[in-house]
């Protein structure tokens, strides 16, 4: 039940993009086509889940043990950067087809603040789900939360790309062309997602 609540909450209610604004730059950058948005979503789900798992373990068994929590920001960003490089190398070797699909998006992900944001969130914030008591997440919950959050990001990205593909065909006023109309569309999409608030 708890896991179910985490998943619903992370995907719909507290959607990382539409409610928390993490990862806006790639969101606006790669949402021109549904196909690129799908590739980016796959890469994001993969990296966020893996990065959260690794940073959670590093935080718990290295930083906390030695009282070095203040190094979280530096340690996490280095771990994420190294991890992304490693994932790239490993994928290239064991699954060239997956590498082809995700490859160009992987280097971009290091600077996607959603990755660092989720990693920092799960080790610093207390969460409440469905009226339960506020508590720090354990390893299982963290990974599920990270996975669901990334799915929510991917869903928002693909939905938005679909909308933008249609926008291309419309006659938009000159000054609204490009990013401004995308932002206004995004605002309306975020408004639709507000309907989920209070669900969990």
């Amino acid at each position: 039940m708890e896991f179910f609540l985490i998943i619903i909450s992370a995907i719909f209610v507290n959607n990382i993009m539409l409610a928390q604004f993490l990862g806006t730059c790639p969101f606006l950058g790669v949402s021109n086509k549904v196909s690129t948005a799908t590739g980016m979503s796959g890469a994001v789900v993969f990296v966020i889940t893996l990065a959260t798992l690794v940073t959670y373990l590093i935080n718990k068994y290295l930083l906390v043990v030695f009282g070095l929590e203040f190094l979280q920001t530096i340690a996490f960003i280095l771990v994420i950067a190294a991890l992304v490089q490693m994932v790239e190398i490993v994928l290239k070797k064991i699954s060239p087809s997956l590498y082809q699909a995700l490859g160009i998006f992987l280097p971009l992900i290091t600077t996607n603040c959603a990755v660092l944001g989720v990693a920092l969130n799960v080790v610093t914030k207390e969460f409440t789900f469905g009226g339960g008591a506020a508590h720090m997440l354990n390893l299982g919950e963290s990974v599920v939360y990270a996975f669901a959050t990334a799915l929510g990001y991917g869903m928002a990205l693909i939905l938005f790309a679909g909308l933008r593909e249609h926008l291309e065909l419309n006659d938009v006023p000159e000054t609204f062309k490009g990013v401004p109309i995308a932002l206004v569309t995004c605002g309306i999409l975020a408004m639709a997602f507000m309907g989920f608030s209070g669900m969990v």
Partner: peptide
């Protein structure tokens, strides 16, 4: 209230950008 919440950020930013372009 919507302008303090998430959707308002996108809307306000979008329209400000239009103004800036203009």
């Amino acid at each position: 209230l919507v302008f303090v919440m998430a959707p308002g950020a996108f809307l306000a930013m979008g329209y400000l950008m239009v103004l800036f372009n203009r």
